[in-house]
Design a protein around this nucleic acid. Structure first.
Lengths: 232, 232
DNA sequence: AACATTTTGTGACAGAAATCACGTTCATTT
DNA sequence: AAATGAACGTGATTTCTGTCACAAAATGTT
């Protein structure tokens, strides 16, 4: 079972996957893990999609990542005493994930410095990604947050069409609002303007971006490499 | 020279410091590194204080960290091709820093999995810290951002006094505004209210927090461990 | 096809925050 | 002690966002 997936993976992920205990099916609507639960495993998504989010006390949800095959989730609990997940991982598309026991993984790092090295690289990229994402949210207002989110979605889930880039994940206005830390209505209004100006179009919850450069220009995008500017 | 500092360091930092090339003096007002510069070294602060920030195109500054002895800065450039600093490191208090060549460090990780392991732990904590910080900024409005910043400053630089916790770093309203991604005037107004309600008092740019619990209650602080809830 | 449920668009309004303007306070230098 | 410049406080105004309300549209279900 693991073998089936291993062949498609990069060398590094393959190494990581060797520590995998088992493959778990993931089902739309359920949670891979929830905030506050004891954290025993991290996961490599093999197929399907998982949304990582955090709630605050008022019940507002802030979405942080939208993960697909080959993304690592549940990673933020390594090397802590009494490890607990600090996010929710909601499954939004069926698939499978490889579960890696955290204690085993820590052992594996000790024995295999190459593995630790690769993971270090991954963490490095991940934190860099996170910080640039939040900078967009904090410094450029709500419009900046939305445009940045759209750009990242294009980089992660974009499919090239004749008329632009199609974001191949169905997204409601509320979903986008959760990524931006904003109100649904605000997103709706901003999207309306973008549509009127032919920057985007939307059909059946699928957004197509016709003028990505416009979005980038508006938020002074530095055209950072695609590895950092995504939503994974 | 290195020996002088090494004795005060934790085992992990000590190991890291073995890779140190040299000690550099850091002088108030100058920069340890700037955004866009080629990144060849990371630094362990030995004494003095360094502020990590990022500019946007309009010239607004977002401050991310305020670092002191034993903090690691310049870390976000590991294992990348053509590594460049993505932040500014402005020195706000004189001191010394140990410079660690990044290429050497990467080699050291290969040879010493214990070292890589410790660094992994550090990265893990660091990213966790970063995300909780930004969540406060994004989800709880500007008041949430300020209160969160004050709480973190207490945890990092707080000194217990008879009448509360003194934040032992001089901070202007503009400094605080930069940490919150907000306008100087907004911070000024919020601080005025806090002073009127005897939550804080300010004297010569030094803030004393008399009622930390009030601040925590207002932003539904989860009382997360101090290792995560700081400004380092 | 009919119905129920989600999702969306939009106006109206309230509240939050940024910006502008300017006088005051504070710290430092000469 | 006077002078200078930086930092602060605050009113007035404008802009941006969130909230509420509700109808229209889209989607899913039987």
């Amino acid at each position: 079972m693991i073998q089936k997936y291993k062949e498609e993976l990069s060398y590094e992920l393959g190494e990581l996957l060797k520590s995998a205990e088992r493959i778990v099916p993931i089902k739309k609507g359920s949670y891979l893990f929830k905030e506050g639960q004891e954290a025993k495993e991290m996961y490599i998504i093999l197929s399907g999609k998982v949304q990582i989010s955090k709630m605050n006390a008022e019940g507002n949800e802030l979405s942080l990542r939208l993960c697909k095959h080959h993304d690592i989730v549940g990673e933020l609990t390594l090397f802590t005493v009494d490890p607990r997940y600090i996010f929710n991982a909601k499954i939004i598309e069926n698939g499978e994930a490889a579960a890696i026991n955290i204690a085993d993984l820590e052992q594996a790092f000790f024995k295999n410095s190459q593995l630790a090295f690769e993971f270090l690289r991954w963490m490095n990229d991940h934190i860099r990604k996170t910080i640039t994402k939040f900078r967009d949210l904090v410094l450029n207002g709500k419009k900046g947050a939305l445009y940045s989110t759209l750009i990242r979605l294009c980089n992660s889930y974009g499919v090239l069409r004749e008329n632009g880039i199609e974001i191949a994940v169905p997204l409601t206005n509320q979903d986008l609002a959760n990524f931006c830390g904003t109100a649904r209505e605000s997103v709706s209004r901003m999207l309306t303007v973008l549509r009127k100006n032919h920057i985007i179009s939307i059909s059946k919850k699928i957004i197509t971006v016709h003028d990505l450069d416009y979005l980038k220009k508006e938020i002074d995008c530095e055209n950072c490499p695609i590895e950092y500017c995504n939503i994974d």
